Amino acid sequence: MHRSERKQARPDGKGLHPRNLHNQGYDFPSLANSYPPLAAYVNTNAHGNLSIDFTDPLAVKTLNAALLKHFYNIIDWDIPEGALCPPIPGRVDYIHYIAELLGIDEPASHPAYTRPKIALLDIGTGANGIYPLLACQIYGWDCVGSDINSRSLENVAAIIANNPKLKGRFILRRQPEKNHIFEGIIQAEEFFDVSVCNPPFHASQDEALKGSLRKLNNLARNRGEKTTVSTSPTLNFGGLEAELWCKGGEKMFLKKLIKESHLFSSQCRWFTSLISKIDNVKPAKKLIRKLGATDIREIEMKQGNKVTRILAWTFI
């Protein structure tokens, strides 16, 4: 097969994926009706619209629990204090773009949907387990979630236990070696259609804190507030070590991920990863080409003013 490489724009040129159920924003009354605890956090903002305080970690976590119950029939979702609280619409986008990459045109709820047998591996599933949860519920895939943190896996195990339909479809594996990614997780003779990953993108806890401060201040400015958060913020973005930061940050993690993917090139059809920093795209693609990938895709995603990218590659 000849080597090919392409950059894919969003299908509609802007905003979330067309299949994303969150394209029209949040219907807070409906969400609060489905998940009553959310009502305590909903207020009218400075623009006269119903919203929550997105700098309040409990409000954001409660919104996530409401979204997961209302749209995806996932109950009792929770994360421990300090764990990464993922933005659900953006995580849903990743899954839809991966489905497109695999040639799947409809979600499982569509009347014409014929369920293919798809196996997904989530590298660094964290305490939230969000990608496998969504992949199981939207497309009916079978998923494995791996993580180095046993406490994170215990939390996801509790979520799975509270949702019996996930039993046997979402399996957890602990990575015992901090210097390995796929090794010790992908078993002999096992094959995955796709792997997903949201790499730790900071090189240290201090760098992660500064990044979260910037996000909090941006949120405050968007609400028209003049106050500035400077120290000891309550971080709605959260993130334990290995979720938000690692030695060398996103660039070094991607290098390790790509190199190890080559060792398992016959056991996974597509390897994919989010890349938050555009400067890391070019060196990542260069390394992938050097290792002999037969196809490379760069897929842009946008949520609000934020643009992130999925990098996908295959050796098959």
Rank of each mutant, 00 (worst) to 15 (best):
T228W: 13
L263A: 11
C246R: 01
G249M: 01
K226T: 06
K226S: 11
G248V: 07
F264E: 02
K255R: 15
C246H: 02
P233V: 08
F271R: 07
M252D: 04
S232Q: 13
R269W: 05
W270Q: 04
S265R: 14
E243N: 09
G248K: 00
K259Y: 15
S261F: 06
S265V: 05
W245M: 06
T227V: 14
K247P: 01
T272D: 02
K256V: 13
T231M: 14
T228C: 11
A242H: 13
L263Q: 12
S266E: 11
S266M: 12
S232F: 13
V229C: 05
S232M: 12
I258H: 00
L257I: 15
S230F: 14
P233D: 12
L240H: 08
G238S: 10
F271E: 07
F271Y: 11
W245E: 01
K247L: 13
W270M: 10
E260N: 05
G238T: 10
M252L: 09
C268Q: 05
K259S: 12
H262C: 09
M252P: 00
P233E: 12
T231S: 15
Q267S: 11
K259T: 14
T231K: 14
I258G: 00
L244G: 04
L235T: 02
E250L: 05
A242E: 13
G248D: 01
M252A: 07
E250G: 01
E260K: 02
A242C: 11
I258E: 00
T234P: 02
M252S: 04
K259I: 14
R269F: 10
G248R: 00
K251I: 11
S265P: 07
T228H: 13
T272I: 07
S232I: 10
E250R: 02
G249E: 00
F264S: 02
T231A: 14
W245L: 04
M252W: 03
K247V: 14
A242M: 09
Q267K: 11
S265K: 14
L235A: 06
L240N: 03
H262Y: 15
K251S: 09
G238Y: 04
S261N: 08
T231P: 05
K251A: 11
F271H: 07
A242I: 12
W270R: 04
W245F: 15
N236K: 09
L235K: 06
R269T: 10
I258M: 00
F237T: 01
L240A: 11
F253A: 01
T227I: 14
G238D: 07
K251W: 03
F253G: 00
A242Y: 15
E241A: 10
K251T: 12
E250S: 03
E243W: 05
W245C: 03
L240P: 00
F253W: 02
G239Y: 06
L254G: 04
V229Y: 05
G238N: 04
T227Y: 14
T272C: 08
S230M: 12
C268V: 08
E241M: 08
K256W: 07
G249F: 01
